[in-house]
Write a protein that binds this DNA or RNA. Structure first.
Length: 612
RNA sequence: GGUCCCGUAGUUCAAUGGAUAGAAUAGAAGUUUCCUAAACUUUAGAUGCAGGUUCGAUUCCUGCCGGGACUACCA
């Protein structure tokens, strides 16, 4: 992208140390000091964007301070506004509507604010914090391929990792794979019975899909057995436990735990296929991990912590030898942490894994991206780790997200209503391709570039669709709407970026005539100052997204910015030979917009094209 | 039953306690000799119900009604 430095020259005093907003805030603090000898706490002081119906750019709400000003809102606002206008260079004027003080900013202040951003190549990245964040996400099972629900998890986790990275944290992305257990044995058993040594190559399937096929086969056989048992008069609950398939699967699990060579060999082979399949899906999603953990290596951890907890009297043992923690004081129940036979439960494992992960990477924050059906589990886990005196426990956070529903209802693998991740990714690609070709956009494009574009658009549309919604909310996935490329979509933002890139290409051709003098741009269009306002807001938005653990804030922001830009430059001619200063200024503004769009989308894991 | 999450235009989503509740879609009507019409402009349409807190409530509190999750010596 064009860096704009050599087209943006004008007398510029010195590097601004403070953002426009910070200056205004300081101005307001000073004003209260000067007028009322009152110290406003910076935390309370909130500036908000002025609504479009009113004059001004920033609005200060004076209602909360009427006790200090001892006057009605209008008078107080007027006094504050007058002081600011007289003492703060950036404030050119003001108006007061009820208790709202709308501050009008000088065009020069806007231009300087823009210049400030152009000068900062690292704009959109906050200073390093010297804090470590571990983001754990994806966590697939190795008995079936990824589906739509995993996509929301993966995109959220990947995005939140990028956001924390941009906020100056050192980020470690980890994936804890669920590669053992009864459900894994189910597909192993079915493969052993019906597989005839089939390989992914022979089946023409990705490894994970091949294994998934046998998982389904197991379930079919299992349910048939249950039905037969019930028909012969066995109680349904009993039938579920006694059907031969499930009994065999349990035997197999036992063999696996006993390290039976044949079982372990089968397990190793099948997992290898699954990983090969997952790798392709991750690659297509553009997702990587810094470290993989496997439950087969961690499931025995945590028993030591149980001992420790008993010693510290955080846990207690019941008569049947099982170990529990009492969390009734925290408003929760008693919770099992070790079975009576001494075997681990999920919680045992997670306690052990927590310690291990903290040893591997001494994090200040540990974010678990896991669906909201596990809210209670994590509440309990965090509470236990605190009780055990783990200092890091206060940094553990469950990024809980809602289910993805289909118009037909909940996804159920048994009923075949799951949306397969690979299928969906491919469908997005195909739709992007068909759509782009129909619009005649690829006439001057090499095949390779075109394919890259379809991938960018298709995957981008999907990521955006899943990330634009507040994570904690349950969301509805409508296939037809997710592959929409118009409206509040990723491709809309990508399109805006590509348009600006086209302007840049043209600007480059005219480079010699692109100097401008800030003094000659006397009147900024209101919408132009709004654009600058929004752009200067970017770093605040990133910080907020990290604070709220919510990529949707970034998605909203990028869309609003793209929309503002499109709305404005649709009707204003940019290339106007008679007003070169204004033209050059607008090119700079476009350039900064493109950069911020690109960075925002980058935080969502979405690439942005130079042309489309 | 208990705990937690969610109820906003026909639909899918927004709104640190702030001004006349925003968008997008679907509906109606327009805009391409000019940088990219995957765009833009205009139009119509919503806070589940009842109280409370205050200058001001979609937001906070209480109750009710609806939807969902969790509530296993499963993971």
């Amino acid at each position: 992208m064009y860096d704009g430095r050599n087209i943006f020259t004008y007398p510029y005093p010195q590097r601004l140390q403070m953002s426009l907003e910070d200056k205004l805030k300081k101005g307001i603090t000073d004003a209260f000091n000067a007028i009322y000898q009152f110290e406003i706490s910076a935390a309370d002081l909130a500036l908000q964007p002025t609504r479009k119906e009113f004059e001004g750019a920033y609005t200060f709400v004076i209602f909360p301070y009427l006790k200090v000003t001892k006057a009605n809102p209008e008078t107080s606002g007027k006094r504050l506004g007058e002081w600011l206008q007289a003492n703060v260079a950036e404030v050119e004027g003001f108006n007061v509507v009820k208790g709202f003080v709308n501050l009008e900013i000088s065009h020069k202040a806007w231009i300087y604010a823009l210049k400030e951003i152009i000068d900062q190549s690292e704009f959109g990245t906050l200073p390093a914090k010297n804090e470590k964040v571990m983001v754990e996400f994806s966590s697939p099972n190795t008995n079936k391929p990824l589906h739509l629900g995993h996509l929301r998890n993966n995109f959220l986790g990947d995005s939140i990792a990028r956001i924390f990275d941009a906020c100056g944290y050192e980020v470690m992305k980890v994936n804890l794979v669920n590669d053992r257990g009864i459900h894994i044995c189910k597909s192993m058993l079915a493969y052993q019975k019906y597989g005839n040594g089939e390989t992914p190559e022979q089946a023409g399937l990705k490894g994970d899909h091949l294994i998934g096929k046998y998982y389904v086969k197991f379930d079919e056989a299992y349910r048939k057995e249950i039905a037969e048992l019930v028909a012969s008069g066995v109680d349904a609950e009993k039938a579920k436990k006694e059907a031969s398939s499930i009994v065999e699967a349990q035997e197999m699990l036992k063999k696996w735990e006993d390290q039976d060579p044949e079982t372990v060999a089968l397990w190793t082979q099948m997992n290898e296929w699954v990983y090969q399949g997952f790798d392709r899906t991750y690659e297509r999603m553009g997702i990587t991990f810094d470290k993989m953990y496997k439950e087969s290596q961690t499931y025995l951890l945590g028993k030591g912590i149980v001992e420790e907890g008993l010693e510290k009297e955080v846990f207690f043992r019941k008569e049947n030898r099982s170990v529990w923690v009492d969390l009734t004081e925290e408003g929760m129940d008693e919770k099992l942490v070790l079975r009576g036979d001494g075997t681990a439960v999920y919680m045992t494992q997670d306690m052990g894994t927590s310690d291990m992960k903290h040893q591997d990477f001494p994090f200040d924050k540990n974010i678990f991206v896991v669906g909201n059906e596990q809210d209670y589990h994590f509440k309990v886990l965090f509470s236990i780790m605190k009780k055990l005196g783990r200092a890091y426990a206060s940094g553990m956070h469950h990024l809980s997200y809602g289910m993805v529903d289909l118009p037909t209802g909940k996804m159920k693998s048994r009923e075949g209503t799951v949306v397969d991740a690979d299928d969906l990714l491919q469908e997005m690609f195909d739709t992007a391709k068909a759509h782009t070709e129909a619009l005649g956009k690829i006439e001057n494009m090499e095949l390779e570039e075109a394919n890259k574009l379809y991938e960018m658009l298709g995957i981008g549309a999907l990521k955006y669709f899943l990330l634009k919604v507040d994570p904690k909310k349950r969301m509805l996935f409508k296939p037809q709407e997710s592959i929409q490329f118009q409206g509040h979509t990723g491709p809309f933002i990508q399109y805006t970026h590509a348009r600006i890139a086209a302007i840049m290409r043209r600007a480059r051709a005219l480079e010699s005539s692109l100097d401008f003098d800030a003094e000659k741009i006397s009147i900024l269009d209101r919408r132009e100052s709004e654009l600058i306002y929004r752009v200067t807001d970017f770093e605040k938005v990133i910080a907020e997204a990290a604070r709220e653990y919510s990529p949707s804030i970034i998605a909203q922001y990028a869309f609003d910015l793209a929309k503002d830009y499109n709305g404005f430059y649709q009707e204003v001619p940019i290339f106007n030979e008679e007003n070169k200063d204004l033209m050059a200024f607008r090119i700079c503004l476009s350039m900064v917009t493109a950069r911020v769009l690109s960075r925002s989308m980058g935080l969502l894991g979405i690439d942005v094209p130079e042309r489309m």
